[in-house]
Design a protein around this nucleic acid. Structure first.
Lengths: 296, 296
DNA sequence: TTGTAGGCGTTATCAG
DNA sequence: CTGATAACGCCTACAA
């Protein structure tokens, strides 16, 4: 055409082709240190495939999630990516809107599964990772491990299941060994102090993410417990927090980059009309640092 | 209309109205712990005003920034928000694409200024904050403060200027007192070890962000220096890293929420055809924690 | 008040 | 192979 800087009108183009090459990304909170990395990698990969990203931070309220999802659908995004496991609700009927969405566009769940919905899932094997981590801490001498989690989301539940499975294999009763912790580093530290005051005894703390683990470190330092001799700690996500903390925190690397590149690659295939598996699972890597005893 | 779930076609709508109520957000790296918060608040505020957010993570390469900006313009976003100060290039001609963009849509710079461009700026008074922080550390006994920065972006330069202004007022020569540090906590710790090995002496370290400050904490712990008696440290941003670190880091809170609500509020006024000031500046708050001596 | 025609800018189709 | 034209779906303006 005219070599004058001509740019086709995106709306008219979208109207004709019925696509704007845009993917909707939903996440509960993009400022979460883990989800922020997910979003970064998703956006990057989508861009490589010349798709734009429409980002929505829904918060943790069901109604908001629904509103946002409808917003994205009304904008005719080509697909939806739901980042993080807070999108699968406990009550089956609360997931109705997701089933509806699947009818309209491909939906990808990152670290979540909605059986029979037709949504695609890419998940890290959190259960196995926590089970192995628990096995390892028990093997290193932990006799009274506790598990701290932030919510019973899909991956929260799977992590807890891994913890309990390890306990069972070591004949440790699981009762009173796992707790819902408030979010935030000082809050978690306080929670552990309260727990101790209530008479719960523990010599190891497995946390469902690095922030809770950092709180456990603060607790131990404040209580004068030696890490890792008196008290072992493990986190999850291999985030910046795990190396910012002193001592540096043993954690599980759930490989955000791999998660996102895989999800986007599968999505591109789906958009090309190809057949891809509905579920993809990959394993995490244990990163051993200074909050756990070194292996013999 | 029909009470059956009718949703107007967004493309046709956009074609007619020539707007999709979408704002383009550019940032270098949405996984950065500071920018992630900016994006969270921007998206949230835009949503409140029923605008959607198109997110682009450009990286730090000029060419990529330009490509992304053109992508957004070609999609007819209603405005652009450039989050973070890495969008103003050193060479004036490298900013040409920004001047071009301003001709087409309102452009907001967060923590950046492009004089005479017609772009709107909302900036934190980083210079004043670092100056006050430096004043305070010197007042608390620091005789050989150093300043660590990550890049000479707009806000990087202003922070450095604040540091130098304080030194000048205290008759301390600025030569050899500020350094470009590599990113990353262990890298910064190593950098300070190298600095010491090169014979540079320092008893306080002001960092341009909390991550560098966390590296300085690691350095001090490793070198057996007592914090804050032998070595004082301050960060910037009041991020999670500052309270994850032990001891917790004195930092400046540049109030991300205020920054973003202000920017979006101004943007909405601009889109309404109202006249708003091109530059808005607000001040940061010093947050005193355990890496600096307590005031008498 | 209600209904209908035209325009938005691109793409795709169909006829020449 | 090329050039005219319908269709995309909504909005708005104008006419009945």
């Amino acid at each position: 055409m005219e070599k004058s800087g001509y740019t086709p009108n995106a709306f008219a183009r979208g109207l004709g082709l019925n696509t704007m090459r845009t993917i909707g990304i939903l996440c509960a909170d993009s400022s979460d240190i883990y989800l922020a990395r997910v979003i970064y990698w998703l956006e990057r990969e989508l861009w490589k495939n010349s798709y734009a990203s429409m980002l929505c931070c829904t918060g943790y309220d069901l109604e908001e999630k629904e509103k946002y999802l409808h917003l994205l659908l009304s904008r005719s995004v080509d697909a939806l990516i739901l980042a993080g496991s807070q999108f699968i609700e406990e009550k089956e009927e609360d997931n109705a809107y997701l089933y509806e969405a699947v009818k309209k566009v491909p939906v990808f769940l990152l670290n979540g599964v909605l059986p029979g919905s037709g949504a695609y899932s890419v998940v890290c094997d959190d259960e196995l990772a926590v089970k192995e981590m628990t096995d390892e801490l028990i093997g290193l001498g932990a006799q009274h491990p506790v598990f701290l989690y932030r919510s019973l989301s899909y991956s929260g539940k799977r992590k807890l299941a891994g913890f309990c499975r390890s306990l069972a294999e070591h004949s440790i009763p699981e009762e009173g060994r796992f707790f819902l912790s408030p979010a935030g580093i000082p809050e978690t530290a306080q929670f552990l102090r309260d727990l101790e005051a209530r008479g719960v005894s523990f010599d190891a703390c497995l946390a469902s993410d690095d922030e809770l683990a950092a709180g456990a470190v603060k607790y131990a330092l404040g209580a004068g417990k030696r890490i890792p001799e008196d008290f072992q700690i493990s986190g999850y996500n291999n985030s910046l927090l795990s190396i910012c903390s002193t001592p540096e925190i043993t954690t599980a690397d759930n490989r955000v980059e791999f998660l996102c590149t895989t999800a986007v690659s599968l999505l591109m295939q789906v958009l090309d009309g190809k057949d891809v598996p509905e579920r993809t699972m990959y394993s995490a890597n244990l990163i051993r640092r200074a909050t756990t005893k070194s292996r013999p």
